[in-house]
Write a protein that binds this DNA or RNA. Structure first.
Length: 290
DNA sequence: CCTTAATCCTGCACGC
DNA sequence: TGCGTGCAGGATTAAG
């Protein structure tokens, strides 16, 4: 389940295969993923150069010489693999070949220099679209996003302001990409555990020192996860095939019934609980988190 | 303005 | 072994 750290890991893996290379050909093996591909997508990609590969929240943004941006979202199970003959130790070597069912290879980009980038996505929760880069501020996927966790705009006061008046549980509010960009179920659980805040607490009660603690927890857990190369869960691996290690460091997510390690330096030892909120599993320690 | 539920999709773990 | 069931869940849409 790619959240911000996983998407960032994928971006870093794709950079050598994409940046500065022309797209020689683009093949779409179906007409849609989660949504229909835009009109003439293959033609609009063919012949243009990828000048830069950016990321915003969970979106990858390939900046094209044509003046358009290719926006890509990995959904739940989206993966890129790279086959290259000039990036491997020996020509023709697989830089990365995930054990992926080729029936779910939906987009294939042949890049300049003998590099093939394949997008595989069994569940097809991912999507791709093209937009005029100059109109990014109006793009519906990007315009409403909250700050990146590592930006100067993201802080305790920002969180308090964004959560003001919201009567939903903080767990739900943090999944709202307008509050902070890039969090999903896993890192929300981890951040709340670190901040010792109950996932059930109403969002508008997060202010002051508590908001500060939460902002720090979000920033730190995201930054540590990026440094670890993200998390490798059921169906995720980095673009370069390197497996993320952060899942070994989860304190809450997936640890139902296991011993709480004690949040914020406190001694605990009680079992981690699982509840369902908005139809999603939430893992937390009722003892540590209030 | 707010909140909630349903929707999309496939693979896998589980119980019988 | 096979079959049915539930779960994983991000973003959007519709409904309340």
């Amino acid at each position: 389940m790619p959240e911000l750290p996983e998407v960032e890991t994928v971006r870093r893996g794709l950079i050598p295969a994409m940046e500065g290379r022309r797209i020689v050909s683009a093949r779409l093996n179906r007409k849609d993923l989660r949504f229909a591909f835009p009109d003439r997508m293959a033609e609009r990609l063919t012949g243009t150069q990828v000048e830069r590969l950016d990321r915003r929240a969970k979106y990858l943004l390939a900046r094209l010489g044509s003046g358009e941006t290719l926006l890509m979202h990995l959904g739940m199970s989206g993966r890129f693999s790279i086959l290259a003959d000039d990036m491997a130790r020996q020509p023709g070597d697989f830089v990365y070949a995930a054990p992926a069912n080729p029936a779910h290879d939906h987009v294939v980009l042949e890049m300049e220099g003998g590099v093939t980038i394949t997008y595989n996505d069994p569940r097809r929760f991912g999507f791709m679209t093209l937009f005029d880069t100059a109109l990014e501020a109006q793009n519906p996927y990007l315009a409403q996003l909250g700050p990146e966790p590592d930006s100067n705009l993201f802080s305790g006061p920002h969180l308090a302001a964004a959560l003001k008046g919201r009567r939903s549980p903080i767990k739900t509010a943090l999944l709202d990409q307008r509050v902070v960009a890039g969090l999903g179920n896993i890192y929300v659980c981890e951040a709340l555990w670190r901040a010792r805040i109950s996932p059930r607490r109403l969002a508008h009660t997060i202010a002051g020192e508590r908001a500060e603690r939460l902002a720090v927890a979000v920033r730190n857990v995201i930054s540590e996860a990026i440094d670890a190369g993200g998390s490798t869960l059921r169906d995720y691996a980095g673009a370069d095939g390197a497996l993320g290690y952060f899942q070994h460091r989860f304190d809450a997510y997936g640890r139902e019934g296991e011993t709480c390690r004690g949040a914020g330096g406190r001694v605990c030892g009680k079992p981690v609980s699982r509840i369902v909120q908005q139809g999603r599993s939430t893992f937390f320690c009722p003892d540590c988190q209030r």
